[in-house]
Design a binder for these strands. Sequence first.
DNA 1: ACGGTGATTGATACAATATAACATTGCGAT
DNA 2: ATCGCAATGTTATATTGTATCAATCACCGT
Lengths: 178, 178
Amino acid sequence: MSSRLRTAGPFPGPDHDHAACVTRGLDAAEARCAEAGARLTPLRKRVLELLLAEGHRAVGAYDLLDRLADTDDGGKRPAPPAVYRALDFLVDQGLAHRLASVNAFIGCAWPDAAHRPQFLICRDCRAVAELDGGGLARNLDAAAEAAGFTLLDAVVEVGGLCPRCRPDETSDPDAASA
Amino acid sequence: MSSRLRTAGPFPGPDHDHAACVTRGLDAAEARCAEAGARLTPLRKRVLELLLAEGHRAVGAYDLLDRLADTDDGGKRPAPPAVYRALDFLVDQGLAHRLASVNAFIGCAWPDAAHRPQFLICRDCRAVAELDGGGLARNLDAAAEAAGFTLLDAVVEVGGLCPRCRPDETSDPDAASA
DNA sequence: ACGGTGATTGATACAATATAACATTGCGAT
DNA sequence: ATCGCAATGTTATATTGTATCAATCACCGT
Ligand SMILES: [Zn+2]
Ligand SMILES: [Zn+2]
Ligand SMILES: [Zn+2]
Ligand SMILES: [Zn+2]
């Protein structure tokens, strides 16, 4: 029975209301930037939009450049620094995350709250589940403290196979819970 | 006085017997490869040696190429694939680790036992402390299981400032838990 | 020893990711 | 208007990592 609930888990199914995810992310971005006195410029917003539009999958910086060209009138593709600077901004604001283990980025799934994210990243399809790493983060804090180490960033990324890509899918391929 | 105990922590001080670390790593490599039926060829051994010689600091693949040239008679620098293949081998055998967050590698500090490593990585000096991530790893296992995710690799890397690089070095670093 | 076989290394070229450096633009404050 | 500053554009380059195929080496059975 639990298998039918799969879409309720950290990996949203293809049927979930993803437009709501995008809207929520963009709204949160506006709010957070207003609060922080930062400027969510058109370029930055468009990059965030593209990240979110990817649907909980990791996106590379150069893929973003291609998409920017596609969605731009005239198809002008910006140069790499443009997108990297936008990504830096979004990551700084906590609106996107960098996935170091795959050299890619993802729009934040929980942009409202401060959080210490950790990620499950599918090797096959690049699907990403963003979990809250509360307990684990405290564990890391303690380890760093014990080592006399000043923690600045924690990278917790688990590579593997998501529910839809792992082979023992056979008995129940209807993951869509439909 | 307590500051003198700092070297006992996960970050070994410059005064520790590092030659023993190197010897231990190389011996463990021989043993493990013999047991696994793998071949610790001269190139692989030399790469491991260079990794270990770095003294618990992260080393980039191209730095290794430079060092290979330096330590080679005639100064012949191998091509990138040579060192990447050696690194792949060492990582597969658990004799070295890849540090995804800094695109670098490090010789394993505990090459004898199977382990689920996690790392503290200094942004200033690239010093690396390798911790055993036992409890944290079980935490990740549980999270992956709950998400219907097949875990293949866990990347746990904490960036920050090591005891010797952090600024508040002066007053009283009680970290040593004297 | 001999030749077959697969693993390892060499060598060339290239792909993918990311940044340095400087010019230009937009926009509000003086 | 113009100064100052943040953001973006532009060009070039740095850094990290692979694909591909040729040559060589270790090992095994004969
Ligand atoms: Zn969604
Ligand atoms: Zn998948
Ligand atoms: Zn040592
Ligand atoms: Zn340091």
